[in-house]
Amino acid sequence: MKTSSGITGYEMFVIQMLFSGAAAGFIYPSFLIRSTSGSYWIPIAVWVAGALLSSWLYSRMLARLEDNKLIAAIRSALGSVWTSIFCLPVLLFLFGTLVVMLRAYSEIVTMTMLPTTPISFLNGMLLAPAALALAGMMPIVRAARVFFLLAFICTLALLILGFSDIDWTLGTPWLRTNGDFLLNKHFYAGSFVWMGFTFTSLIGSYRMQSARRAWRSYVVALLCALPLIAGYVYLPVMTFGRDLSQRLTFPFISKMDSIYHYWIVFESMTAIFVSVTMLYVLITMALQLHALGEMIKTLMPRAHNGLIYVIIFIFVYTAATLLSSWREVEHIVLVTIAIRLYIMFAFPLLGLAVLVFARNQRGKGNGL
């Protein structure tokens, strides 16, 4: 049985798993490793609880849409001007996320496989997700189903290989923490990994039954992605130790580069990991582009759909190309923490309040 948005529970699961693979493999391990001197799984568990709370708030909001799209429902309740103000942080977040993800992947390709290729050329990979986003949600879903099994099987094989040369004692302490991560900005910078449900909430129409089904699929995907996320964090630490891992820009990439066995046919595990991750990234960027395009189309209904995506492409490509260094990418992630926390918790609460108030007002009007 399909949801109102035409996405089955399995397809929602696939999309969320691909999002986790795209978001967790690059910057996240470095942020988490630098956030605490205690056990790493504890801050991960705290964010899992935060992700469950955030997605539950979104599901409660989506359950009140009555087969309508989220931004359209808010627009009918608040009007165009107030909805634009209300959704401005979301628009900024989507734009910033696209810029960071595009530049992060281009930077990794430059570091690992194509050191002489200009960043401006590599950023052109945005064309593929832009074309998918323009085609609509269902082409994105179909591509996700095709990419998922191949990407997940390869990633699982790489993680298993990563366990072949580790020292378990380097992962200690396993059970001790003093809560230092709660006062560390790097802990909050990693919030983007736990926001997969936000993107799918902005696309498609929902009602109570489909919202609950989507939330259940997200919970299953989150639990299935936990070993993947933990592997990205712990494998570098159990290979290089805490101190060295904290100084690495991409700890898991460095981990892949350290794997060597005479019986492995492929020369570079890093190149395989980067190539497989491209499947995660393309689908995730297509989803983000589609969410951004759908929001702009709702706020500006007279705008031509193709023109919207052309303008988004130009702005994202230009911003990602103009960033002068990797440190600027990290700086963007750090300075946008407040926006992400707003979107995770405040936005669904305020949106739910708006929808409840609008429904009560309609009820009073019908009563009169």
Rank of each mutant, 00 (worst) to 15 (best):
W326M: 15
R242H: 14
I283A: 02
Q16T: 13
L226S: 01
E66H: 03
F187N: 08
T172K: 14
W326D: 06
I264P: 05
H261A: 10
L292G: 04
N366Q: 08
S55I: 01
W56M: 05
N305S: 14
Y234D: 05
A131E: 09
R213P: 03
M238W: 02
F148V: 05
M195K: 04
S210K: 03
R212I: 04
T83V: 01
I74G: 02
G171F: 13
P236L: 15
A286C: 03
V233S: 07
V109Q: 09
F152L: 15
L92F: 12
T249S: 12
M295F: 06
L341D: 00
M12T: 15
I140N: 01
S191R: 12
A353F: 00
S191P: 01
S217P: 14
H186Y: 14
V237K: 08
L52M: 07
P43F: 09
M208R: 10
Q361R: 01
G179Y: 14
A130L: 11
R64D: 03
Y218M: 08
S191T: 13
T198M: 05
M101T: 02
T8H: 06
L57T: 00
A128W: 08
A73M: 04
A135H: 01
G50L: 09
V329Q: 09
Y10R: 11
I296P: 08
S324I: 09
S324K: 06
L92E: 13
P139N: 04
L282Y: 09
